[in-house]
């Protein structure tokens, strides 16, 4: 397990990789990857029992990125964790690369292909029923998919204490605020009504995330609502709709890296 200071270093490198990939030929889902950074970094470096040398270890914990469009964040974290070479990130979205816009199983560490929203939690039910400890990371806009709530109801009914849903609550979907599209609030109350234990935290605070992920299970599934900021780390984009997808030109790319580094140097969260 990494100490908190190192974890902030790792999260910073992950953000740099994300920005680099958004400067590739196709751009990338920038905002929702930056909001996800601490969530996946804490899970892969402090919580999940996984071994990059044995990605198929039959007893490993399972992470499913149900918001598959956060792929570039996942690739960056997997690379930092040693599942794939960091240099491979430069192939993202290039012809012939296994690093697609949504993750596939050919990438070491990716358990299931995702991208069509609303699939992860049902899959998580299956892994949990099979006895695995499983974390399913969902987008908040994704919660508009009805299949999420089918699975949420079933998980509670089965009392799956080894299942945790993590909601990246950045409050924005592609075209605007979730609350102006299909309202989700009261979101914590919704999960509770489905029979889940709910934990809310600052989704960019590693210590708070760690506590939310590791507090002993109450014998039923746990939903961690991680309050995040879309585009976190790039102030000009934070909390904006245009952060959703970016195809950075060379100048924007260099400027974004400079902003990330300056903020990191200042110790800004």
């Amino acid at each position: 397990m990494e100490p908190a200071r190192d974890l902030r270093e790792t999260a910073h490198r992950v953000r740099e990789h994300i920005v680099d990939m958004c400067a590739g030929p196709e751009g990338g889902h920038l905002g929702g990857s930056l909001s996800l950074t601490e969530i996946l970094t804490v899970l892969y470096f402090q919580v999940l029992r996984v071994d990059p040398r044995r990605p198929d270890d039959p007893g490993r914990d399972i992470l499913l990125l149900s918001k598959g469009h956060g792929a570039i964040c996942l690739y960056a974290v997997l690379a930092e964790r040693g599942f794939l070479p960091v240099e491979e990130l430069a192939t993202y979205a290039r012809a012939g690369s296994r690093l697609m816009g949504h993750p596939i199983r050919a990438v070491p560490g990716v358990e299931m292909p995702t991208g069509s929203l609303g699939h992860g939690l049902a899959l998580g039910n299956g892994f949990a029923l099979a006895g695995r400890r499983c974390f399913v990371v969902l987008g908040d806009g994704e919660l508009q998919e009805g299949s999420v709530w089918e699975a949420a109801g079933v998980a509670a009914g089965l009392g799956l204490g080894n299942l945790t849903a993590v909601v990246d609550r950045n409050t924005l979907q592609l075209t605007g605020p979730t609350e102006e599209r299909v309202p989700l609030e009261p979101l914590a109350g919704r999960w509770r009504a489905f029979g889940w234990e709910v934990r809310e935290c600052d989704g960019h605070d590693p210590a708070a995330l760690l506590a939310a992920f590791t507090e002993p299970s109450p014998g039923r599934p746990v939903a961690v609502i991680a309050h995040t900021v879309k585009g976190r780390g790039l102030p000009a984009l934070e909390g904006t709709v245009r952060a959703h997808y970016a195809n950075l030109g060379e100048r924007q790319h260099q400027r974004a890296l400079a902003v990330l580094r300056a903020r990191h140097k200042r110790g800004a969260p």
Partner: peptide, 12 residues
């Protein structure tokens, strides 16, 4: 949907 997804997770 959950029925099939859960089966997939178990099979995996």
């Amino acid at each position: 949907h959950n029925l099939i997804g859960t089966a997939a997770g178990m099979a995996a």
